[in-house]
Amino acid sequence: MKLLSLARRWETVLAAVLAIVLGTAAWLDPAFMALSTQLELSTHAVELLIVALPMTFVILSGGIDLSVGSSLALAAVIFGLSYEAGAPVWAASVLGVLTGSLCGIVNGAFIAGARVHPLIVTLATLAAYRGLAEGISLGRPISGFPDRFLAIGEGSVGGVPYSLLIAVAAVLAFALTSTRTVFGRRVYAIGSNEIAARYAGVPIARMKLWLYGIAGTVAGLAGIIHVARRNTAKADVLPQVELDVITAVVLGGTSIFGGRGSVVGTVLGVLVIHEVREFVGWRWQRDELILVVVGSILIVSVLAHNLVARRAR
C-alpha cells in the first residue's frame, strides 16, 4: 500500500511538471498548444511511447533491454527486404513483427536460460541486431511502399493520426495487464524479490522469456510503424532510441531495481520528454538546447522529489 501511494505521488509530480511545461508553452506561444498542432506532433513520440510500455515491464521485473532499438531496426529491414522481394505488404509486416519477437526471445533465452545478466546480454545484442540489419541490407535504404501502407503512419481519422490510436490501444493493453492480470502481478513480484517470487510459484524463466519476447515484438511493431511514417526501411533508423526509452521509463518513476513503477508513470514520462523536446525545438530552434533541458529535467525532477520526500519524512 505504501509503495502504491509512493508511485501515485510521483505520478502527481510528473503531471505537475507536464502541466507547467504546457502552461509555459501556452503562455509563450499559444499556437503550439492548438489541438491540431499537438495531434500532428504526437506522431513524433509514437515509437518512443509504444516501446516504453514493454520496457516498463522489463524494468519492473528488475531487468533491462538495451537492444530494443536494434530489434526495431532489424524488423524494419526484414520488412523492407521481404516487401522488395515481392511479399504482400501485410505479410511483410507480420514477418517484421515476428523478427522483433525472435530478437526478444533470443534475449530472453540467454537471460532466463543461461542466466546471464540482461544488461550484458542486451549490450551484446544491441550491437549484434543492428549489425545483422546492416549486414543483410548492406546499409541500403528501402522505400517505395504502397500508399495504403504509408497511411498507417500518416493517415488520420478526424484529425487523430492512426499511429496515435495504435499507441493509445497499446497503452490501454499494457496498463490493464499490469494492474488487472496475474501476469502483471507476477512482473511486480519478480522485480520486488525474485527468490520470494520463485518460492511463491511464479515461473520465473517462462515469465522472463515472455517479457523479453514482448519487448522484441513491440519493438518490431514500432519498427513497422516507423517505416510507415517515414517511408524508409534502413539499418540506422532511430539511433540510440533505447536510451530515450529508458530515460522515459525511469523519469516515469519506475525503479531501475525493479518492483516499483507503473504504466501510467511511463506514459507521463514520455509525454514530459515529448512536449519539452517539441516545445524547445518549436520556440528556440536550437537542437543542442533540447539535450540540455531534457537531461536536466530527468535529474532535477527526481532530485527534487527525493529532497522533498526526505524533508517531509
Binding site: 540540455v292 530527468l298 532530485l303
Partner: peptide
Amino acid sequence: VPSIIVTLGMMTV
C-alpha cells in the same frame, strides 16, 4: 538519485 538516472541525464546535458 540512482546512478543510472544521474549519469543518463548528465550524458545528454
